[in-house]
Amino acid sequence: MTPASLQGGGPEPTARAAVVSVAVPLRSRLMFQSQTSRRLAFGYLLLAPAALYVLLLVGAPFVFSLYLAVSDANVGDPVATFIGLENFRSALEMDVFWIALQNSVIFLVVAAIFKSILGTSLAFLLLQDFPGKKLIRGLVVIPFTLPIAISVLAWKWMYDSQFSVINWVLSRVGLIGQYGTDSWPIWLGDPKLALLACIAVNVWRTFPFSAIVLLAGFTSVPLEVLDAAKVDGCSFFQRFRHVVAPMIFPILMIGFLFDTVFTLSDLSVVYLLTQGGPANASKILPVLAYQIGIQAGNLGRGAAIALFLVPLLAPAMFLFLRNLKRREY
């Protein structure tokens, strides 16, 4: 047994080094230093495969796409010249860019609200013990496991202006009129509904995931802590606010961050449902970037639109993650 291990849960490097240096003579201290370098070498060795993978396959291409964003590259012309922020300027000149930006933000916020409401309530329910829990849990995770490119097509069929099963039900229940009347909603054709319809698919697909993340959070709160709080006379909401919430906060935030990033860059739902129509009412940034950059071939402008949010998001995310990690200790 060394002093360090007797310290019992003292992972702070400085504290432990201090203990070691007090307890052992100089020769051992040199040994310790070589141990440090061995530790670092081992660490970087372990890190190397993942770091290289990400660096080569994301880092380098990322630099390339940054270069695209400041050049006049189009798909057919091998020679691209540097044009500074021209691509960003011309993006700002487009009405549709601003619409897409606004829609992306709406998409993100509205989807997040619904996902957290549905996810939290579902998590609370699944936290209980009851017969058939596994089966029900299995059923609600299905939306998350189906390949998105195909399940969106099922929604497209459910939103069909004519054969929509949703409308069929609503109409039979009497909430909307008959097919052909004005109160028959055209989910993907009404500018007021199209974006919402796309958001609904995103929520449907990801709320089970939110629920699971939250469930994990709730499970992580030790029962003793809750019981102690109960004994201390805390009400349910007090317990939630002061005990549960702080403990699940980091989990929530990580889940939220992942979801934000994936939602912002996901084009499949909108692209497959509406292409951004009618008249750009559901256009979001990735779809616009894809249509300009890839389909119409203006790589430079497409890259600028696709990367537009990065300078805004990157610092926010950095600070966020730093803070979050601090909380973990």
Partner: peptide
């Protein structure tokens, strides 16, 4: 026409015809 046409894709008019409408 009805407002459906705002939501149509390339396949919708096929179905519109095929359904007898």
């Amino acid at each position: 026409m009805t407002a459906e046409v705002f939501s149509w894709d390339d396949a919708s008019d096929n179905r519109y015809l095929a359904s007898g409408i």
